[in-house]
Design a protein around this nucleic acid. Structure first.
Lengths: 233, 233
DNA sequence: CGCATCCTTGAAATAGGTCAATATCCGTGG
DNA sequence: CCACGGATATTGACCTATTTCAAGGATGCG
């Protein structure tokens, strides 16, 4: 029964989820030889908005890729204040550093909305990696990307003001090179605030200070009248 | 001649440097089979205090391990303000993420004092890694450690005040568990300030605010009268 | 012993956090 | 399709931590 259920979970991986998984930063780098073996050990997990996936210090037996929704990775200080470390969206992988680091989660993870995840068993993944350098290389790629993102985050926190961080985020989400565009935020503003290391109020104020360079906010929709003006902030 | 010189460089690797290199976070994880091959392609680099090793955007053909001294990894904003991303000391490896990421440095690196480095050629290292999963695993280990350090840094920047960051640093450098001790800072205070994401003045003030919990500063020597008192900051 | 560098201290300016009140958004159910 | 209500977001006022600028003091190297 237990195994029957597991098989069902895998079979139920719908076309859209499966293609997201195959295109995830982690899986996408591997060839047709290992991918099936990995898909064997993947299970699908659905969690509701605000559910805590795991906590810092918990025993870890899996890492994850996001298929649908957004997950918040964060730490707590002893007063219970929270600080986001990374926001993971579709195709992002997290906690994969535990492949090398140990069996304890090093941050908390919470679903910011209803989320679908691919779950990779750590032990079994280590076994597969042991036999397949291809997997090791994918892990290296993945870790390098995350390290780069983290270093960007440190530098931005230390060098940029709130409006600059917001401008930087907008420029990174924009398709066009210049002129006018509009963006739809993929998540709530409170999540963006956390991602940028700001209180929600500070994000609001940053947006309103960007009005003078042609940024208009209506709900999740952001109008940008001149991309180049944003770059000068 | 050129090759003669290279050989000399390697031969000149003195006992102390060599043992540091063999114990560096990167090399130490590998067995006797690959290590000699890697030592073959290592060259030793000496740079003077304040020398810039490379700049963000420079073409990259090597990564490094520190043997002696300290190296500052930092970014610039467009006004020329600097923010440290990581401080690397003896046995630390940096820029190894370029093995996967590309051939452009993603930050600036500057010697904070006279420094001796082991230089790993990226191309040749990639070739060795291709044949030796052991090397890939060492790289994963190394990247995971750096990622963890970076995430700690983000969380600390966002959650802790200046005195808390200093207390946290001191507690991490202390050997004893409780009672009184003293520490000798391994580098200048201005470097510590940068590492903690503070202006030098803020570090000074943080130290003087820690006086009331029994922290006394004289030059590079820090006296701590009660470790447990520090933990409560 | 002297000079340069590094560190500390003070005073003023600022960015952002916190708290509280109001406004807006959006999913739900009618 | 609209109206309702809870959750989100904005705004204002205040407060605190940290930066910045400027000057004085300590430190250590030659």
């Amino acid at each position: 029964m237990g195994s029957r259920e597991t098989v069902n979970k895998i079979l139920r991986l719908n076309t859209r989820d499966k293609s997201t998984l195959l295109r995830s930063s982690f899986i996408a780098q591997m060839g047709p030889t290992v991918v099936p073996a990995i898909l064997e050990l993947v299970s699908i997990v659905n969690v509701e908005a605000r559910d805590v996936l795991f906590r810092e210090g918990d025993h870890a037996d899996a890492f994850y890729s996001v298929l649908v929704g957004y997950v918040r990775l964060y730490r707590l200080n002893k007063d219970g204040r929270e600080a986001d470390i990374r926001i993971c969206g579709p195709s992002d992988t997290f906690a994969e550093c535990l492949l090398a680091l140990g069996d304890t989660y090093v941050y908390n993870a919470q679903a910011a909305e209803p989320v679908t995840l691919a779950r990779f068993d750590l032990q079994r993944m280590r076994q597969i990696a042991e036999k397949n350098p291809e997997v090791l290389k994918a892990v290296i790629r993945c870790l390098s990307d995350h390290l780069l993102v983290s270093m960007d985050c440190i530098a931005n926190d230390r060098l940029q003001t709130a409006p600059q961080r917001v401008a930087h985020y907008l420029l990174g989400s924009v398709n066009a090179e210049e002129g006018a565009t509009s963006i739809r935020l993929p998540f709530q503003k409170s999540l963006l605030a956390g991602k940028l290391g700001l209180a929600p109020e500070a994000l609001s104020r940053a947006f309103s200070s960007l009005r003078r360079v042609g940024v208009t906010v209506r709900g999740r929709t952001i109008q940008i009248s001149d991309i180049n003006a944003l770059k000068d902030i």
